[in-house]
Every structure is written in C-alpha cells, then in structure tokens.
C-alpha cells in the first residue's frame, strides 16, 4: 500500500479558545502551522514548501467561524469562515459584492467549502483574490497573541510576497468590514487564461459611493492584485474620481491612473507590459460593474 504521497509526521491539536491556540503557537517556536481550510497549508506541507511539528486546527474556536452582519455595524468575519458560507449569505452578497465576487472564484466548489478569506490573507500572496476586495472595503484585521489582542487595517497587513505583520505566536482571529453607506457598490475581477481554477495574472477591486442624485461620485477606492509585491491601493486613481460623474470616460481615466501603482514582475503568467495593461482594463471594468450595481440596487 501507500501509493499516495503522504505528509511527514506532525502532532495535531484543535484548541477551543484563542488564548490556547496562541500559546500553542508561541510554545512551538516557529515549528507550528495554523490550519483553517487547509487548502494552501496542506499542499505546502505535502510538497515540502513548509514543514511543521505541530498543526493547530482553529476551526473549533467559535470566534473564528463567525459570520455576523448587521446594516449598522457591518460584517464580522471569523478568520476560518469558509468562502462557501460567505457567498451563500444574502446580506453579505448585497453589502460586500467585491468580496463575494472573490469568494466565488477562489478554486472550485470543493476548495470554497473549506478555504477561508482569513487563510487567503495570511498566506499573503500578491495574487490573493480576496485581498483587493478587503482593501476597498477597508477591512480591519483583529489579531490575537499570547500577550493580548491588537487590530490593524488590512492595508498594513501584507509586507512582501508570502510575508505579513503577524508576530510570533500571533494569529488572525477576525476581520471586520465597516457598514456600507447608501448608494455604494463594489466589484472584483481578475484575468486568467482559463475560465476557472487559476491564479490571477492581474486583478482589481473597485468600490464607489455616489451622492444622493447618483450623478456624481462621492468617494471611491481601487485596489490591484498581482501587480506588486503585495496587493496595493491605487490612491491617486481613487481620488481622481471624487466629485466626477460616473461615466465610462472617467472610469477609463481612473484605469490609466491606477496603472501607475503597478510594478509587476515578468513570469510564466504574464509580462510586465501585459500586467500593467490589465491593471488599467480591470480597474475600468470593475468601476463600471460597481456603478452598475449601485444603479441596480
């Protein structure tokens, strides 16, 4: 027997409270992995990209499986809550469409049943689908460590490809997304050479808020993925739109401005030139879709 490629041995614990998880993580001194959906971690362990003496399953901690939404307080999302649960919750679909767009296209259904937005964030890939939507929705990370808790905006979380600001013994507990004002909408799109099941060559999320007349943009945020060492906000392009009419011309101009924050690499997925081009096109398209969603609401 044993035709399967097996994992190397490790111990497994499934604590039921956060402090116990953080203590176990600290005590393992860098030899532990946090297991949420496992769709990245188990592959990394099996393929030798990562090794661990201890796997800490956080899915028995109720706080990490939360999905609480209220129109006046926003969304509290447990770090291990799977994608499937997010896109099958109608209130979340209506309030945070860019995040929902991402959760529907991370892997296939089998992956979405397990993979979490928190795990996607902690894996900290520049191409992570859920991070640009978290950025435009101004999500905040709530971290727990043996010494206590702290909160940082998602925009300060990723520091380099695969790196983030989690300290030893610290883990992501929840993400909160602020409530949505009236006349706001968002969208996320990526370019991949297949229809499904691939890693973004480039991606963009856009969020816009219109004024009450819906003829002018009150506020906008644009974020790009896979075109820099971390997902990145396009501040200038976002500011450009404030006070402008929500027209294709202005969305196109914002796309041109957004390209300025793209500093991509050449690799097997795409060239620098192509990725910069995509950043502009996807910015324009996600702005148009976000606008359409406001109009339809």
């Amino acid at each position: 027997m044993g035709g399967l490629t097996t994992l190397s041995g490790f111990e497994y614990v499934a604590p039921t409270d956060l402090t116990a998880a953080a203590t176990a993580l600290r005590d393992a001194g860098g030899r532990a992995c946090v297991l949420a959906g496992g769709t990245d971690i188990l592959v990394q362990l099996r393929e030798g990209m990562r090794s661990a003496d201890l796997v800490i399953d956080v899915k028995k901690i109720p706080e990490l499986l939360q999905l609480e939404y209220a129109p006046d307080s926003g969304l509290c999302l447990g770090a291990a809550t799977p994608c499937y649960q997010i896109y099958t919750t109608a209130d979340v679909v209506n309030a945070y469409p860019a995040l929902v767009d991402a959760t529907r296209i991370i892997g296939g259904w089998q992956i979405q049943s397990r993979a979490s937005v928190g795990g996607n964030l902690c894996n900290s890939s520049p191409a992570a689908d859920s991070i640009p939507p978290l950025l435009v929705h101004q999500a905040v990370c709530h971290l727990a460590g043996p010494e206590g808790r702290r909160s940082i905006p998602v925009s300060d979380f990723c520091t380099a490809p695969g790196k983030n600001s989690l300290q030893p013994g610290e883990l992501l507990a929840t993400l909160t997304l602020p409530p949505q004002p009236a006349n706001a909408g968002s969208a996320y799109q990526r370019f991949i050479p297949r229809n499904e099941m691939d890693i973004a060559v480039a991606s963009a999320a856009s969020w816009i808020e219109l004024d009450d007349s819906r003829n002018a943009i009150k506020s906008a945020r644009i974020a790009l993925g896979a075109v820099a060492p971390t997902p990145v906000l396009a501040e200038e392009a976002s500011q450009f739109l404030v006070g402008k009419a929500p027209t294709e011309e202005n969305f196109s101009e914002a796309g041109v401005l957004a390209r300025q924050v793209a500093s991509p690499i050449d690799d097997m997925r795409g060239t620098v030139e192509f990725r910069v081009h995509l950043a502009g096109v996807l910015t324009q398209r996600t702005l148009a879709l976000a606008h359409q969603r406001v109009q339809d609401s």
Binding site: A14, L35, G38, L42, V55, D57, K59, Y84, Q110, R114
Partner: peptide, 15 residues
C-alpha cells in the same frame, strides 16, 4: 463533508 463537496486529499482525517 457535512453535505458540502470537499477534496478529501486536502482534509486531515483527524479533522
């Protein structure tokens, strides 16, 4: 797994 499709290669049996 509890009614949802999963890849059983990406689930630890202890889970």
């Amino acid at each position: 797994l509890d009614g949802l499709p999963v890849d059983s290669c990406l689930v630890l049996a202890v889970e």
